[in-house]
């Protein structure tokens, strides 16, 4: 394990469930991972595996009927003190100073992430006023600066526009500006480029990298695009059905995946050397409905190397499978 630095954020055994009449969805089911200062952690997994709910749990903004049932989320604050975010009340002053202050959040949908009846400026200025001791005038100047720093042209004018007046790319930049306006030490980006075209995607990723270098901020990058992870991340966490099935450095994961699910994921992306017109391998079966998750290893019904009588009975723990990496699979002792 790396013990060169203390993690900025340490998630331990996080469980978040949605309690509905139809049943309980264990959206996050015992996830553990660390985010280190100045580094980028990529979180990958299929749709519905609990990536967004993990992000929402960290900020304690999970929507009803969802609730954190167990686990710890330890944040190291700027002064070196540690707080467990799970222990805070959901509307307490402390957690509110973490939201937007220590941790900024960007969402997948730049279209609907801004209020349709407030200007971009109103929403940035509000954040600045909330987290720093400045007046309205100064807050506005900082808002304009924030917009400028994410490459929005004519920020003095754009600040008074509504989000629907901006193009998709500018809107996502504005979203990043709001998230960064109070200098967070961790930026959680939940699929920040999914809704954008490929060129704009690349620009936004470049922007995130540039900002990270300038400010030494940590990024938790949630995506199901493995290409984005390969390009951006230092460390990778692979999630399946609310669990972390593998984690490690980006090179290790991409060149020597251990967990069968990670292997399958990597095989399903086209590469420059793959034979043209050959059908890409897909992962057989589909994600089980969250109400009836399989017994044993959650991946065993779709796993090509499942060991009958073992994988469908016991649940493999997440354990070290080499230098600085872990996987939860019985193939590795």
């Amino acid at each position: 394990m790396r013990n060169d630095t203390r993690p900025l954020l340490s998630v331990r055994n996080l469980r978040t469930s949605f309690f509905q009449d139809e049943g309980t969805t264990k959206a996050v089911d015992g996830a553990s991972f660390d985010v280190f200062p100045g580094k980028t952690l990529g979180i990958v997994g299929e749709s519905g595996c609990g990536k967004s709910v993990t992000a929402q749990s960290i900020l304690r903004i999970v929507d009803r009927p969802g609730r954190i049932v167990d686990g710890e989320i330890v944040l190291t604050r700027a002064d070196g003190s540690e707080i467990d975010l799970v222990k805070l009340k959901a509307n307490s002053r402390e957690i509110r100073s973490v939201r937007g202050g220590d941790i900024g959040l960007i969402f997948q949908e730049p279209m609907t992430s801004f209020s349709p009846v407030h200007t971009v400026g109103e929403q940035i200025i509000e954040a600045v006023l909330l987290h720093s001791e400045v007046g309205k005038k100064e807050a506005r100047l900082r808002g304009i600066e924030a917009l400028r720093s994410v490459g929005i042209p004519k920020p003095e004018r754009r600040i008074d526009e509504y989000s629907f007046e901006l193009s998709g790319g500018l809107r996502q930049r504005a979203m990043i500006a709001v998230a960064l306006s109070c200098n967070p030490r961790l930026l959680i980006a939940d699929e920040p480029t999914t809704a954008l075209d490929v060129t704009t995607q690349a620009q936004i990723l470049d922007l995130l990298r540039k900002i990270q270098q300038e400010r030494g901020m940590a990024i938790m990058l949630i995506t199901h695009n493995l290409g984005v992870v390969a390009e951006m991340a230092d460390d990778v966490v692979v999630m399946y059905l609310g669990k972390v099935v593998e984690q490690g450095k980006v090179d290790d994961i991409f060149h020597d995946p251990k967990h069968p699910y990670t292997k399958a994921l990597l095989q399903s992306i086209p590469s420059i050397d793959s034979t043209p017109r050959l059908k890409l391998p897909t992962i057989s079966g589909s994600i089980p409905h969250p109400f009836n998750r399989p017994k044993g290893c959650p991946f065993h019904p779709r796993c090509v190397s499942a060991i009958a009588g073992r994988c469908d009975v016991e649940e493999p723990p997440l354990q070290a499978v080499g230098e600085g990496r872990k996987a939860s699979c019985f193939l590795y002792p």
């Binding site: 929402q56 929507d63 509110r96 801004f114 209020s115 709001v178």
Partner: peptide
């Protein structure tokens, strides 16, 4: 249910202000 409510929360506003200022207004 709209994402802008969650982003308002993620900015650190108090629950009362989040609700009155954004979704109620809309």
């Amino acid at each position: 249910r709209k994402p802008y409510v969650m982003t308002a929360r993620a900015r650190g506003l108090s629950e009362y202000r989040v609700i009155m200022r954004y979704p109620v207004r809309v």
